[in-house]
């Protein structure tokens, strides 16, 4: 199996606080990979190291064929931040247009992609509205649309479904699965909601700066003799 992302002994601390401690992880190409862990365990930090938005203290990270940090990687990455980073005084379309231009999409393609990604997240009707008028869920969806705008090979989504209603959540998951199946995208998502973990093909459990367990949801449940994924997490973490 070829790897999309390889992390080797990555260490990161903020001031005196060690967040990631010699963490190693392999994420295969063409799969939906779930990075799980409680709030504050360092999921976002790990993702930022992988993209190269944040400098690591030690270790090696390779994404596709690039040693991070490498600017050539960035056109291949679609990133959705945990907190929506949108220009609230602009409309949804203007936000999408801005990011499309940053990826140097030609004018025609830009228009087509904006329509397409807006359709994926069901925002076509409110594209002309300013973000200030958007609800929290609409902003999440627009952030996801921005991550998709340049049709990247690897999608890295930080808690993508927080604040999104169950119906839309299901349609977003369907779309992610379709992107993986038909376009062969690699999709990394983080979540602290355990039922989402079961939709991933591979998962890694992050705790205390390490990956404490990896594998498919079924394998992990088997290994820890759990019926629900939550139990896996508790047992792997050594709590009963």
């Amino acid at each position: 199996m070829t790897m999309a992302i390889t992390v080797h002994n990555a260490t990161k601390s903020f001031y005196n606080k060690l967040v990631l401690n010699k963490l190693s992880l392999e994420i295969p190409k063409g799969e939906i990979f779930g990075l799980l862990g409680p709030s504050g365990c360092g999921k976002t930090t790990l993702i930022k190291l992988i993209i190269g938005m944040l400098k690591r203290d030690e270790g090696d990270i390779t994404v596709l064929t690039y040693n991070i940090p490498d600017q050539r990687l960035l056109p291949n990455i679609g990133y959705m931040a945990q907190s929506d980073a949108l220009y609230t005084d602009l409309t949804g379309e203007q936000n999408l247009d801005f990011f499309a231009r940053l990826y140097k999409l030609p004018k025609k393609e830009r228009k087509a992609r904006i329509q397409y990604v807006a359709g994926v997240v069901e925002l076509e009707d409110v594209l002309q509205k300013r973000i200030a008028e958007y609800s929290g869920g609409m902003m999440r969806r627009l952030s996801l649309a921005i991550a998709l705008i340049h049709d990247p090979e690897v999608l890295i989504l930080d808690e993508p479904t927080v604040g999104i209603d169950p119906v839309l959540k299901r349609s977003i998951w369907r779309e992610l699965e379709r992107l993986k199946r038909e376009d062969g995208k690699t999709i990394v998502i983080t979540t602290h909601v355990m039922d989402e973990a079961e939709r991933c093909e591979q998962t890694a459990l992050l705790r205390n700066g390490h990956i404490i367990a990896t594998g498919s949801p079924d394998k992990l449940k088997e290994k820890y003799e759990a019926t629900r994924f939550e139990e896996v997490f508790l047992r792997a973490g050594g709590e009963n």
């Binding site: 938005m53 056109p75 949108l86 220009y87 940053l102 990826y103």
Partner: peptide, 14 residues
């Protein structure tokens, strides 16, 4: 403060 500058760091902009 809105995080958009950090968000830009995930795009190829220099």
């Amino acid at each position: 403060t809105s995080g958009t500058l950090e968000r830009l760091m995930a795009t190829p902009i220099k």
